[in-house]
Structures are given as C-alpha cells and as structure tokens.
C-alpha cells in the first residue's frame, strides 16, 4: 500500500474521471438523481467503484455467515497453499484465509463507517458554528485543528490507541478525531463565504433567527464538499484500521481483520507463502479503491451543482 497518510483527502482533479462531461456542456435541467444516473451511464469506472462499495458493505453484514471453516479456531493445517478445500490457502494458525477475508469487513467497514459518521456530524457542526459566528472561539478551534493535522497521522493514532487501550471503541474515536478537522475546514470555508450572501441578509431582514439561518439556509448550501468527502474518508479509515492492526496497535489477533491477516503472513512471503498476506491485501486495495472512486464521482456531481 503506497498511499501516504499525508495525502489524505488530496484527490485528483474531477476532470480525470472517465465519465466527466466536458466543462462547457450545459447541465440538463434535472435533479441530482438524474445527474448520478448520467454519471453511471458514462463511466465504467464509477460502476466498478459502486460495485466494490456494495460488495464491501454487503460483506460487512453477511460476511461472517459465509465462512467455510471456523474463523478463530486453530487447526494443524497451517500454511497450506490455495487448493479446492482452502480456496485462498491457510495461515500459520491453520485458519482458512478465504473465510477470514470475507468476514473481515464486519470489523473494518464497521469501524470506518461509524468513525466517518462521527467525524462528519461533529466536524460539520463545528465548521458551521465557527464559520457563522466568527470570533476568537472559532480561531481557537481552528488552531486545535491545525495541531491535530500537523501530527503524522499514524504516529498520533498509535499514541492515542496505546494510551487509551486497544479496543473497537477507541479505534473508532481516534479515526473520527483525525478526520474531524477535515470536515471542520470543508464546511467552515463554505460557510464563511455563504454568510456574506444576500439570502443571509434577506433572511435576517425577514426576521429569521440566527440559528435558523445557519442551520436551515447556510448549512444545506455548504454541505456538498463535506458529503463528497465521506466515501473518501471511509476508504482511508479502512486503510488506517488495517494499518494500525498491521503494526499491532489496532484490532487484536486472531480477530478476522485485514490488517491483522496481512501482518500474520508478512514474514512468510520471503519463503514463498504469498497467499497469507496477498488476499487480504487485495481486499483492502479494492475496497479503498472503490470508496475513492465513488467519492470522486460524488465530488464531480456536487461541485458542478453549486
């Protein structure tokens, strides 16, 4: 996995998308649903991305029930190569790699979804408030955001998880914390310009309360970039979860989790037992790729709209 944590959120130009309409083409007078459909029709890449996301989410729900062998029960059949019995081979504990690859999204995708949801809601709320009511509290919050973002991601994650304890809840909170500044910035930057728009003044002159203006009028207009960021955050959250687990700061083995599985096979690659790390590694790549493509497509749709 060569994606640097520092590149977080730095996504390519929307025009790279296979299905991007040329810039000058007028928008069809249609809602967002129609635009998404249009994007799907034009781009095979987006279709693949959506398919991968759908599979990941589906596996998070039903994955553990598809296991062909017990997931966490050591057997003497260790390090067997892929065969008709063990489709993806077995690992040093004699676990069936195939079953565990399918079961892992229950942990990885769940952590990512919950962490992203927390980051999105808290980050957007803070971004809205600090953008709409300017002043020193907002500046203070932004400096804290700077502080969080200036730390190397993994180092910060490791420190916090080690200090607070390795469990599901703490991993979720750490990933949420790391992503909150991104949503604060995205929403705040929109709100800062939106609050100067005529409809805010008109709203106030019409007797609307400040909070009402902020929540009902400013927020819906400034949420698009944050929404487009959601799938990208989910993808990176999966990557961080797996990364933390890989270095032993995340989910504990023998829980079926992709990072743990890659780690368990890392030492045997050199002696030719590639399957132990390879299949979970591919699973991580495809899932993150899928979320990234969907995020990119959402961005293309949202950003054209405003």
């Amino acid at each position: 996995m060569s994606v640097e944590p520092g590149e977080y959120g730095a996504v390519g130009d929307a025009a790279d998308m296979g299905g991007e309409r040329s810039g000058d083409a007028p928008l069809p007078p249609a809602g967002m649903g129609a635009q998404v459909k249009e994007l799907l029709r034009r781009s095979w890449l987006v279709r693949i991305g959506l398919f991968l996301v759908a599979v990941a989410v589906l596996l998070a729900i039903v994955g553990p029930y598809l296991a062909r062998f017990p997931l966490e029960e050591a057997t003497p059949n260790a390090n067997l190569p892929p065969s008709t019995t063990y489709w993806f081979g077995t690992d040093p504990n004699g676990f069936d790699v195939f079953s565990r690859v399918l079961a892992a999204p229950r942990i990885d995708v769940a952590i990512a979804l919950v962490a992203t949801a927390i980051a999105f809601f808290i980050g957007s709320a803070i971004g809205l408030l600090t953008g709409y009511y300017r002043g020193w509290p907002g500046e203070f919050v932004m400096r804290i955001a700077d502080l969080i973002q200036s730390f190397p991601l993994y180092v910060l994650a490791i420190i916090i998880v080690v200090l607070t304890g390795r469990n599901f809840q703490n991993i979720v909170l750490v990933i949420a914390l790391l992503n909150i500044p991104i949503y604060v910035r995205l929403v705040r930057s929109q709100v800062l310009s939106l609050r100067e728009r005529t409809f805010v003044e008109a709203g106030k002159a019409a007797g609307t309360t400040d909070l009402n203006i902020a929540v009902r009028h400013v927020l819906p207009n400034g949420l698009s970039p944050a929404l487009a960021q959601v799938p990208i955050t989910i993808g990176f959250a999966i990557l961080i979860t797996a990364g933390l687990s890989f270095i032993g700061a995340g989910v504990r083995p023998p829980t079926p989790e992709w990072g743990v599985m890659v780690a368990s096979g890392a030492e045997s690659i050199i002696i030719g037992e590639w399957w132990i790390s390879f299949f979970p590694g591919v699973a991580i790549s495809l899932t993150v790729f899928g979320f990234a493509v969907v995020g990119e497509a959402l961005r293309a749709v949202f950003l054209r709209e405003v």
């Binding site: 728009r197 005529t198 008109a202 106030k204 002159a205 019409a206 007797g207």
Partner: peptide, 19 residues
C-alpha cells in the same frame, strides 16, 4: 423584521436560498 417592515433587496435570485 419581515412582519411590520419588509425588505426587498437588489439581487432577487440571491435573496432566495438556492437549494
């Protein structure tokens, strides 16, 4: 504001919430 005294601003489309 709005109830007793109404204000009509210069840029009518900008005065409505676009979404």
């Amino acid at each position: 504001r709005g109830r007793e005294i109404g204000l009509v601003v210069q840029h009518p489309r900008g005065a409505f919430n676009p979404v």
